[in-house]
Design a protein around this nucleic acid. Structure first.
Length: 424
RNA sequence: AGAGAGGUGGCAGAGUGGUCGAAUGCGACGGUUUCGAAAACCGUUAUACCGGCAACGGUAUCGGGGGUUCGAAUCCCCCCUUCUCUACCA
């Protein structure tokens, strides 16, 4: 959520940012918010001064009652009745105005960082760098959805039977590979200074609001109506919400945490050729890294996160590229996002395996996640997160890129984690 | 899930309708003292919003929300949560 003070004091900057993000109704929404803000402040002032008078009178009435001056007390009571009417109507209108303003604020996306390229869609994203060489596969090479059947390591039909489409069953070496990757990613994160956490994978409504999944995007999450809990779409939600309503002591900064969780996405619609096999699932595993930093350090932190993720891909020997997302393709809450994509040799295309973002104060403002700068006023922190990494497409690339007639040869770094060197 | 008891500031813990943003203690911070430290003493020690250039003033907040009242930490209702016992389970 954008800060009101920024909307007020830097309106032009906000409008330019919203335009870059391709947010159509920016000017109208901002104007409406500022109008409501003016009204809100008037109401607040009027309410507060009436309440102040009423508080004084209440004290005087108390004094009169004690001294036995019933008549005097009654006179003052008449005045408090008037005041009460005023404060009540002002409070009611104030609540209404605040609610409207809040709803409009929730609708506004974050402003993009200056380095974010202009653009509307994925084709406009900026390729920052490419690393590694794409493997040359033989003529017999097949996509991962054929490989998993050949080696019987991931079973989609079985998942359909148990749950439904998009919930695969990992079997034998497939299951062990999953566990190996999770352990590898967590160990790497820990070695990079992230504290490992195991958060709940169901979250309440307040947490959904904190990181920006709610309102408006509830359709993308599975929801348990009976207990009003949401299955997390990413560990970002519980991990970041650990720091909701916290004033973090400056010596504890930066916060660096990591966690592995299953992730659940309803992904309504969008089925087709691009989403075959492991490319898009309703349930998948992911290791997430989260940082919370002072504002002046957040972009350096984002760079270290991207470097960490690149290190993982290098150790897995996967060719990858780093993209800086354009304004139109970025997430709603992000100020700057790098996507990392690995080359899927048999599909002949890039697969997104990680997204690392700096949210600046956008989430922190919703979360009320603050610190105290130099003993002075509290100030909003910057939140960041990145996938390090999401498993399914990594698995897809590992299977496809490393297929040989003798089986799938896994990268050396995974041998001890898996307990085997090849699949098949 | 059933029964009972609780939830007060960073922590502990008073406070059952009136001047209570809240006693007291601990902790933390600043100062006096000291060569330095401890001890002692003095002072400070929440968050948000509104007004103000500021100093400062106002309002709200005693788990959350609503209600009664001129006035609520205190009374009433709903919800959340913690503990004890029972039930159930991993």
């Amino acid at each position: 959520m954008l800060q009101l003070s920024v909307l007020r004091d830097q309106t032009d900057l906000v409008l330019a940012g919203l335009a870059k993000k391709r947010y159509a109704t920016g000017p109208a929404d901002v104007a409406a918010i500022l109008d409501l803000d003016q009204r809100r402040r008037q109401l607040q002032t009027s309410h507060d001064s009436a309440q102040a008078e009423a508080n004084k009178l209440a004290q005087q009435i108390g004094g009169l009652m004690k001294s036995g001056d019933k008549a005097g007390a009654e006179t003052l009571k008449a005045r408090t009745a008037e005041l009460k009417q005023h404060t009540q109507s002002a409070a009611a209108e104030l609540a209404q105005v605040e609610k409207e303003q809040q709803q409009l604020l929730y609708k506004l996306p974050n402003l993009p960082h200056a380095s974010v390229p202009e653009g509307r869609a994925a084709a406009d994203n900026e390729i920052v760098r490419e690393h590694g060489t794409k493997p040359e596969l033989g003529p017999d090479a097949v996509p991962h959805w054929d490989l998993i059947k050949k080696y019987d390591i991931i079973d989609f039909e079985l998942g359909v039977k148990i749950t439904g489409a998009g919930f695969p069953v990992y079997k034998g070496q497939g299951a062990r590979l999953q566990r190996a990757l999770i352990n590898f990613f967590l160990d790497e994160a820990r070695n990079a200074g992230y504290t490992e956490m195991q958060p709940p994978i169901l979250v309440n409504e307040a947490s959904g609001y904190g990181t920006g999944q709610l309102p408006d995007k509830e359709g993308q999450m599975y929801h348990d109506a009976k207990d009003d809990l949401y299955l997390i779409p990413t560990a970002e939600v519980p991990l970041t919400n650990i720091y909701r309503d916290e004033i973090i002591p400056v010596e504890k900064l930066p916060v660096r945490i990591t966690g592995h969780t299953p992730c659940f996405r309803r992904e309504a619609g969008s089925w087709g050729a691009d989403v075959r096999g492991l490319n898009r699932l309703h349930q998948f595993d992911k290791v997430e890294i989260v940082q919370i930093t002072e504002p002046e350090h957040s972009y350096a932190a984002l760079d270290t996160m991207v470097a960490h993720i690149e290190g993982l891909l290098q150790k897995l020997d996967l060719p990858y590229r780093v993209l800086r997302l354009c304004g139109g393709d970025m997430g709603f809450t992000s100020a700057l996002t790098y996507d990392l994509e690995v080359w899927s040799a048999a599909q002949g295309r890039w697969l997104e395996v990680s997204s690392a973002s700096n949210f600046e104060t956008y989430q922190a403002n919703r979360l009320k996640c603050r610190y105290r700068a130099d003993g002075g006023k509290t100030q909003l922190l910057h939140t960041l997160n990145g996938s390090a990494l999401a498993l399914p497409r990594i698995v897809a690339a590992l299977l496809e890129n490393n297929q040989t007639p003798e089986g799938i040869k896994l990268p050396a770094v995974l041998h001890s984690y898996c307990g085997f060197e090849k699949i098949g």
